[in-house]
């Protein structure tokens, strides 16, 4: 782990910190009341980006064989399909 990595990790930490704050700010500034689904979308996207940074760099998935990433994605796809299909079925 070189010095630049150390800086990279710190930078990512900063990004995560800021993103979490933005998410909370969206709520506190009342965006949820004015444009609910837009705000939901923004918050969801921010969460996904945060998760990507943690998984890709802190869990260094970016530097593992791609198969490990596919493993993780497989689990995600399975539960997302379950949730989506179940929610759709009761409409």
């Amino acid at each position: 782990m070189s010095d630049s990595n150390w800086k990279l990790y710190t930078a990512i930490f900063g990004v995560l910190f800021v993103f979490a704050t933005i998410q909370a700010a969206v709520e506190m500034m009342g965006f949820l009341d004015s444009a609910y689904w837009l705000a939901v979308g923004a918050i969801a996207v921010l969460s996904v980006i945060k998760a990507y940074f943690v998984a890709a760099y802190y869990q260094h998935l970016k530097f593992e064989p791609r198969s490990v990433t596919y493993l993780v994605l497989g689990g995600l796809v399975a539960v997302m399909f379950l949730t989506a299909a179940a929610s759709f079925s009761i409409t």
Binding site: A20, Q23, A24, V26, E27, L32, V40, I43, A44, L46, S47, K50, A51, V54, A55, Y58, Q59
Partner: peptide, 18 residues
């Protein structure tokens, strides 16, 4: 530990914001 962290990244908006 990072996995636990990531889970929280989704629990936080789901249970505290939306």
């Amino acid at each position: 530990w990072h996995f636990v962290d990531i889970v929280w990244l989704f629990l936080f908006p789901l249970f505290y914001i939306l």
